[in-house]
């Protein structure tokens, strides 16, 4: 999963996921806005993925917290993606939506999420290609859609756009000579 210095995977790991504390922890109240107090058993709060993953998985059955599926992958978002993959603002859900999805899928096995993510990635990739190969794509009517694509889709857009640009440059140079 990426290299140690991969900024995208670091940013993915710092995204917050909802978790529930399974035991009371003295002095941790500041996490839920109760400074100086204790963290009560059963409190729900948001922790960064790297911390939550470690606390939820490391100690086996006696884990101090349990993880929940983040809002970005909730049923509401999945339904929206199923209905119309192109009109969902993934960036608003999570800047690293697909990477977050992959990390969550490592922890929870959920066939439905895999299916929905695969399908919507394909549909959106076709749309991205259309915008990337169109020289005015990023400015014209595609602007709304391109605002809503997540980081890995941006990467894809950049790659497709620069190869299209290199091609146009080569053809342009041919004419100049």
């Amino acid at each position: 999963m990426g290299s140690y210095y991969d900024i995208d995977s670091i940013l993915t790991d710092s995204q917050k996921v909802p978790c529930t504390f399974e035991l009371s922890v003295p002095g941790l109240g500041y996490l839920s806005g109760n400074a100086g107090g204790d963290m009560k058993q059963g409190t729900r709060c948001e922790l960064p993925l790297w911390l939550a993953e470690m606390l939820a998985v490391s100690l086996g059955n006696s884990a101090p917290i349990t993880l929940d599926i983040p809002d970005a992958l909730s049923q509401r978002v999945l339904n929206a993606l199923k209905a119309s993959p192109r009109s969902v603002d993934l960036r608003g859900q999570a800047p690293h939506f697909y990477r977050l999805g992959t990390r969550i899928l490592d922890l929870f096995e959920d066939e439905e999420i895999v299916d929905v993510l695969t399908e919507s990635f394909k549909k959106r990739a076709a749309e991205i290609a259309d915008h990337a190969y169109n020289p005015r794509g990023a400015l014209g009517e595609g602007a709304d859609f391109l605002q809503g694509i997540d980081e890995s889709e941006r990467e894809l857009f950049r790659a497709a756009h620069s190869s299209a640009k290199a091609m146009r440059e080569w053809m342009g140079e041919m004419k100049k000579k």
Binding site: Y98, R99, G101, T102, L105, D106, E109, V114, L117, T118, F121, K122, A125, A129, A132, S152, E155, L156, A159, A160, S162, S163, A164, A166, M167
Partner: peptide, 19 residues
């Protein structure tokens, strides 16, 4: 011309389907 886009798509789909 198509390499960057197609390999990018395949790579991402593979990551999503990894689990």
């Amino acid at each position: 011309e198509g390499r960057a886009f197609i390999s990018g798509v395949i790579d991402n789909l593979r990551k999503i389907g990894a689990s």
